[in-house]
């Protein structure tokens, strides 16, 4: 196993060559904000929260999809990166109807955590207030498009870990929506196994367990990573 040495935020560290910059940073206790990444799932580099500045590349790269390389010098918290991250979170809040006070995930929401982390005290952009539907046709779970950030973690959890591929994305741009089967009510889906992995993977209150109160509604987002590690490495570690 080859080892690479690199510098992240001034700290010289080593990483295994197959690791991503994000994994190497986390191993060294350096936190990089993420949203679309979830341990156990493939990475898509979509949310752009984890963008880092790697000297000599001339562009910003997502830490979650970028492999470590020998001698890399990486900055994860420049003023520019911080301002981009804050703007991305603002854009998400403006895009749909994220009203924490009436959200089932209040207090257990990664979007909310990110807003606090990036210091979002107000939103500079117009709230778009789109009309979004809520699908409660499934007997155990619900989908609230108002809260969806299109991270596609549900899509990947269902496809890669459960193997059902009930979820997908339809539509384009800001009109894109996650769908079940052929864009039909979740309750009528023939592929859904009701395993609930999508609900656990969801960072916000978009996917929820019906009948739970805000206080009860704590998701176990490490479940997917736990399952995959158990499967692939035969290690039952949390």
């Amino acid at each position: 196993m080859a080892v690479k040495t690199l510098t992240i935020d001034g700290t010289l560290l080593s990483a295994r060559e197959e690791q991503t910059v994000l994994q190497a940073a986390r191993d060294a206790g350096i936190a990089i904000p993420t949203l679309c990444q979830l341990d156990g799932l493939s990475t898509v580099g979509a949310c752009r929260m984890c963008l880092v500045d790697i000297e000599g590349t001339g562009r910003l790269l997502p830490a979650c999809t970028t492999r470590v390389a020998e001698g890399m010098v990486i900055h994860t918290k420049t003023e520019r990166l911080q301002s981009y991250r804050r703007m991305i979170v603002e854009l998400l809040f403006a895009e749909r109807n994220h009203i924490c006070a009436v959200c089932v995930a209040n207090g257990a929401c990664e979007l909310q955590d990110l807003a606090i982390e990036v210091g979002m005290d107000h939103v500079r952009f117009d709230y778009l207030h789109p009309e979004c539907s809520v699908d409660i046709s499934h007997k155990r779970f619900g989908l609230d498009h108002n809260r969806c950030v299109l991270c596609t973690r549900c899509v990947r959890a269902c496809d890669e870990v459960e193997g059902a591929h009930t979820w997908d994305v339809a539509g384009r741009g800001t009109a894109a929506r996650v769908i079940t089967d052929m864009a039909q009510p979740w309750g009528t889906s023939e592929t859904c196994t009701s395993c609930g992995k999508c609900v656990q993977a969801c960072p916000t209150g978009a996917l929820f367990i019906k009948g739970m109160t805000v206080a009860e509604s704590r998701k176990d987002r490490s479940e997917i990573g736990f399952l995959v590690t158990a499967r692939e490495k035969k290690q039952w570690v949390v």
Partner: peptide, 21 residues
């Protein structure tokens, strides 16, 4: 660009809408 954005990444999906506004 707003109409043609695929919607995968946030800067383009939600950013072009705001730029257009």
């Amino acid at each position: 660009c707003m109409d043609e954005s695929c919607g995968k990444c946030i800067p383009c999906r939600a950013g072009t809408v705001q730029l257009h506004r």
